[in-house]
């Protein structure tokens, strides 16, 4: 009888990654970085609103013609949307499963509680949920116009943005979400770097600085738009 020579058969790469807590964290890290890159681009695009309706609306239209003539109208945009939806779903599902595991691992609390971890660290879960809900509202408000305040105009994003930030709740929802985003990015970027093994004793100081700068820039860049509308700079 021949004995099996190979006894080290292991599950596939995808299976190993998804089944492991370390692998699932890597999925979270990569999907988070994809969303983060998108947010930087999105924030820079938003700032064009300070140069008037002409430039802002032209930019919005250009997004749809991106890649032409190789791509058809809106094809590139839809590809980006598909990637983003995949990233959001991967991020949320792994976050949910990892959180379930974490909560199960520590069922009974200590009687003597001591102040734990930083604010950004402790608010990752609920901050993430808030961001998820915000994305839904944001798309219904400014992409589809379903819950838009005061006549949504297809192809006139400048006016739509001004409409949204002319309501008090539009400003509140947006600014709260952007602050949550800043906190989320601050802890998330640093954690993603550690999960992907990019951190080290010498590099972590720089990684923390990059995380702080990214969080601050994104927060300031996004908040600038509602503040601009409220102060009348954008109207």
């Amino acid at each position: 009888m021949a004995l099996a020579t190979r006894t080290d058969r292991r599950p596939s790469l995808a299976r190993t990654v998804w089944d492991s807590s370390v692998g699932k964290k890597a999925v979270m890290a990569v999907s988070g970085i994809v969303m983060l890159l998108y947010l930087v681009v999105h924030m820079i695009g938003n700032l064009k609103i300070f140069f008037g309706p002409g430039e802002f609306n032209h930019y919005a239209h250009w997004l749809r013609t991106l890649g032409e003539p190789f791509m058809h109208y809106e094809w590139t945009l839809w590809m980006i949307r598909v990637v983003l939806v995949a990233a959001v779903v991967a991020h949320a599902v792994s976050a949910y499963q990892l959180s379930r595991r974490d909560l199960r691992a520590r069922p009974s609390k200590y009687v003597h509680r001591k102040a734990r971890a930083s604010y950004a660290t402790r608010t990752m879960r609920w901050g993430g949920v808030i961001l998820g809900l915000f994305i839904v509202w944001h798309l219904l408000d400014l992409t589809t116009g379903t819950v838009h305040a005061g006549g949504f105009q297809e192809g006139h994003p400048y006016q739509n943005v001004v409409d949204t930030f002319s309501t008090w709740y539009g400003n509140v929802v947006y600014i709260v979400a952007v602050l949550a985003l800043g906190l989320h990015v601050r802890h998330g970027f640093f954690s993603a770097a550690q999960t992907l093994g990019a951190g080290s004793r010498t590099r972590n100081r720089a990684l923390r600085a990059v995380a702080d700068v990214l969080a601050l820039l994104l927060t300031a860049g996004f908040v600038a738009v509602p503040v601009g509308v409220m102060t009348g700079v954008v109207s």
């Binding site: 080290d8 292991r10 190993t16 089944d19 492991s20 807590s21 370390v22 699932k24 964290k25 990892l98 595991r101 974490d102 909560l103 199960r104 691992a105 520590r106 734990r116 971890a117 660290t121 990752m124 802890h187 640093f190 954690s191 550690q194 999960t195």
Partner: peptide
């Protein structure tokens, strides 16, 4: 390779949680 894969798999199997970089 097998060391890190097997030890992490056993760690998950035992019901320990995951790292959220709290640093505690």
């Amino acid at each position: 390779e097998t060391r890190v894969l097997d030890m992490v798999a056993q760690m998950d199997e035992e019901g320990f949680g995951g790292c959220t970089l709290a640093g505690e």
